[in-house]
Design a protein around this nucleic acid. Structure first.
Length: 206
DNA sequence: ATCAAACTCTAATTACATCA
DNA sequence: GTGATGTAATTAGAGTTTGA
């Protein structure tokens, strides 16, 4: 299945003449043993092989430019680039493979940073909303206490004057102000021109 | 339709160069 | 000298195309 092996054998044998790959029997090749490169200590720093390893600035620039144009590398472009740069087409292919890997890795890092920032913003917002909920609960609790006081007061008032009528107009503003109800207009919303008589208003939020 | 060869790719890894 | 880092090259495995 791995048909590139033969090509790679040729390529490898170019880099490592007389090395382990020349000694492999056909059966060993077919068995696809995990091959390990020999360390290239003997040649380090002196041979043509080493000079080939590092691409020149001009080669790099052209490869980068080509990569910017298109991340995929078709056969034609690979061969053209290789001949323009004096490289083996295989080297060009390898360069693009590695470049794509670096690009992907960078994109993943960028995406991670973005998500991290979003997460931090969301946590702050969650905290703010939780505080708001707490404040609103406190307000609600206070309002319920006030309603309770008003109900009790109203009941005492009714029992003392069974025949008298009762209206909000008669109580405001001194009546509500007396119980610290300022600023609760939005909590106890009463539509305009909607007069509530008798006990109905007391049960509205019960 | 099937199969193998020849190619591509990615992901992981290794080997080497360079620099602090 | 050494560890960290960047990158060229290798490897395995999977997918696609092509021709017999």
């Amino acid at each position: 299945m791995n048909q590139i092996d033969d090509d790679q054998m040729v390529l490898i044998s170019q880099y490592y003449p007389g090395g382990i790959y020349d000694q492999l029997l056909p059966e060993q090749v077919e068995a696809k043993p995990r091959r390990r490169r020999k360390k290239n200590k003997g040649d380090a720093g002196s041979s043509e092989v080493m000079r080939k390893r590092k691409l020149s600035e001009q080669q790099m620039n052209q490869l980068e430019q080509s990569f910017e144009d298109e991340h995929k590398l078709e056969s034609e472009r690979k061969d053209r680039l290789a001949s323009e740069l004096g490289l083996d087409p295989r080297q060009v292919a390898v360069w693009f493979q590695n470049r794509r890997a670096r690009w992907k890795s960078k994109k993943i890092e960028e995406e991670y940073s973005k998500l991290k920032t979003q997460h931090e913003t969301t946590v702050v917002e969650k905290c703010r909303l939780e505080n708001e909920v707490l404040k609103l609960k406190e307000q609600l609790c206070e309002a319920e206490k006030d309603i309770q006081k008003l109900t009790e007061r109203f009941e005492r008032f009714s029992s003392n004057s069974p025949s008298s009528s009762f209206s909000m107009e008669a109580m405001e503003p001194p009546f509500l102000g007396e119980f610290g109800m300022e600023g609760l207009e939005n909590v106890f919303y009463v539509p305009e021109n909607n007069y509530i008589h008798g006990l109905d208003w007391v049960n509205l939020y019960g």
